[in-house]
């Protein structure tokens, strides 16, 4: 109980309280920075666990020939290939100490090639899926079911048109400089009704963060430890 409950709670309390108080005392003002560096260091070691977990799970799948084990094989090959190419800096033409000291992104290395020609296109592709999903989600979600939904629908149309040059083009009732075109309306919606809502949500979130932090520092919320047992 002492090791699993009391000591972690004590560490949380001390670190939290010290960081809050450090704001008040200039001598300790760099503590926040120091602690975040410590966090980075711990996170780096935790990666060994993460990487290990990845290898274990996919290795198991391949070993037990579960359906789809081929994908796990591709995953592991990719993992080890990238890891070793980055570690041994193949393609950089370096040797000895120079090789070990060079960063993985060293000029001409295969690691750069992997980044440039595999990683970048894949990440961009995943992100580009968003365009398709926005279309299918709005097809489902924007239905004029009631008054509120209708207001939302109209606002969505104004923003969609106002965010392109077509908005200015079809604003036949006003000249481009008049301040009443669709882009201007879109801007107004963003600047006033939307901004008011955003601010309210942000204030709520800020207070939520304060109270969650206090609960954690004071050891009231122990949900993140899995149980409420004293």
């Amino acid at each position: 109980m002492l090791v699993r409950r009391t000591i972690p709670l004590l560490i949380t309390f001390v670190v939290g309280a010290v960081l809050i108080l450090s704001k008040l005392f200039p001598v300790t003002s760099s503590l926040g920075e120091e602690f975040s560096i410590f966090f980075d260091i711990i996170a780096v070691f935790a990666f060994i666990l993460g990487g290990g977990n990845l290898v274990k799970i996919h290795g198991n799948k391949i070993y037990r020939r579960v359906p789809g084990w081929g994908y796990s094989l591709v995953c592991l090959i990719g993992f080890f290939a990238t890891l070793s190419i980055g570690m041994f800096k193949t393609g950089t033409g370096l040797a000895g100490v120079e090789r070990w000291a060079a960063p993985p992104t060293y000029s001409g290395g295969h690691f750069n090639g992997i980044y440039e020609y595999i990683f970048k296109p894949l990440a961009a592709t995943m992100f580009a899926l968003l365009a398709f999903y926005v279309a299918s989600a709005s097809y489902r979600a924007f239905r004029a079911k009631n008054l509120e939904a209708t207001v939302l629908l109209v606002a969505a149309f104004i923003i969609l048109l106002g965010r392109t040059f077509i908005g200015t083009w079809i604003s036949f009732w006003a000249g481009p400089e008049s301040g009443y075109t669709l882009p201007d309306l879109a801007e107004w919606i963003m600047n006033y009704p939307n901004l008011a809502g955003q601010r309210a949500i942000m204030i709520g979130i800020a207070l939520g963060i304060v109270s969650t932090s206090l609960k954690i520092i004071l050891g009231i919320d122990r949900g993140y430890m899995g149980t409420d047992a004293e």
Binding site: A131, F142, K145
Partner: peptide
């Protein structure tokens, strides 16, 4: 790219309109 965005917005709007018609 803006040309693409403009046309895509119109297509999305058409979908929303169609969605609403079927809904009604």
């Amino acid at each position: 790219r803006m040309g693409a965005q403009a046309i895509a917005h119109i297509v999305i709007m058409l979908f929303i309109v169609v969605g609403n018609i079927t809904f009604f």
